[in-house]
Amino acid sequence: MWKSAFSYFISLCLLASFCFVLWVVVSHDYHWEAITPYRANLLSGWLTTLWLSTAALVLSIIIGALLTAGQLSGQRASSLLCRIYIEGIRGTPLLTQILIGYYLVANAVGWDSRLGVGIVVLSCFSAAYLAEIFRAGIESIPQSQWLSARAIGFSEAQTYRFVVIPQAVRRILPAAAGQFANLIKDSSLLFVISVQEFTMQAREANANTYATFEAYLPLILGYFILTFPISLLSRHLEDRFHYED
């Protein structure tokens, strides 16, 4: 009974805190008319974020899968190389990676597309995290499943295709969905190389009007519209791939 009462009390506190924050946000004296002229810019920024995130998401899955294959290949050199890449990318700030990617690397090879470089850098960054998620998922499949597949006469490729990947996908989904949502939000850092994405447009609107909240608050809705469907899709797929109990 005390446990239940405590649980109600905590829930009530959380609800009250949420209502308080909401009231503070809503009751602020806004001047939405200040950023009205920037509506089209914000929409175009949102569409750019949608496009670059989608492209980076697909590319990061491909690079992540290649890194996972490199790590699990059994070849010492490729495994070590992938490991160094993953640790290097995960241990350093995305901001510096974007700066180095555009101003040093892309400049050196003569590639001038800010959006293109942004997509590639973001993909390389996210792929390092995805590779670890994929590897952990694959390594979580019990040895007995590999043994059973070998006994049946499956080749290694068949074992991955019919036994390991279908089971690993279910385990990978929640973490991968979280990483995809991070990727979308991380794309906001591409402002440092002046990619005209959603956050960049909000920054410009703010710089021109000084209406900070009016410029930045639409970001909440804009990013949520992009990340929430990923969460829903992930849950739907988790149910679809559910096979235990």
């Binding site: 007995s144 043994l147 059973s148 006994a151 049946i152 019919f162 089971q167 279910r170 791939f241 096979y243």
Partner: peptide, 14 residues
Amino acid sequence: QNGFLFQAFNLFPH
């Protein structure tokens, strides 16, 4: 050419 059966069944759960 052979058939193998294990103690823990090892069926594919999915």
